[in-house]
Amino acid sequence: MKRALLPVLAPALVALGLVPAVSRAEDAQPAAASTPVHQFSVYSRGGVQAYLAPNRSTGLFGGSVGVRDIIQDRFILQADVGYLMNFGNVVPVQVAAGMQHRIGFYTPAALATLTGFFGERLSFLSSDHPSVNRIPPVALGLLLAPARFTVEGAQLSILEFGVGVSPEFPGVGVAYQLNLIDVGVSF
């Protein structure tokens, strides 16, 4: 995996400005013994994030920025805030905790997420839901990052998938997340 992807991934990270060009040779070395306990990074992602329920729809297209802490090169804590549009102007706030598995610079990850959707929405009124629910939905879910790579503390992940649920009394709403790209840089 590592040898096969390196020629593609390393130039991509360099092109994104995430890794200095001079360090490309070092990238071939796996992050190992010298890994700090806490590795903080800022990250940004873009894609689709929506909350769809029988009584309201919100979000859809947009992105987020956040802060991530990778602990002992294994555990991930992160929090981000963003902007979504389509079914109104929405600020999604997500906190997540999970794990990454390192195989060289290939670091797929899985995270449990808690996502709040704050702002505008499209509401649907029926006999089950006779009035507008103005409390922002908060969905508990799972986010998978199967194509995630880490080189020298810079992270690049493409096509992350997430799903979550939130109660709506009666029924549930489902939060969908498809991150086209997630890029993080350590500091």
Binding site: M85, N86, F87, G119, L122
Partner: peptide, 16 residues
Amino acid sequence: RTFGVVASGLGNNPGN
């Protein structure tokens, strides 16, 4: 049977 729909703001978001 009735079904109500309420758009946010003025109702001019793309999804509306």
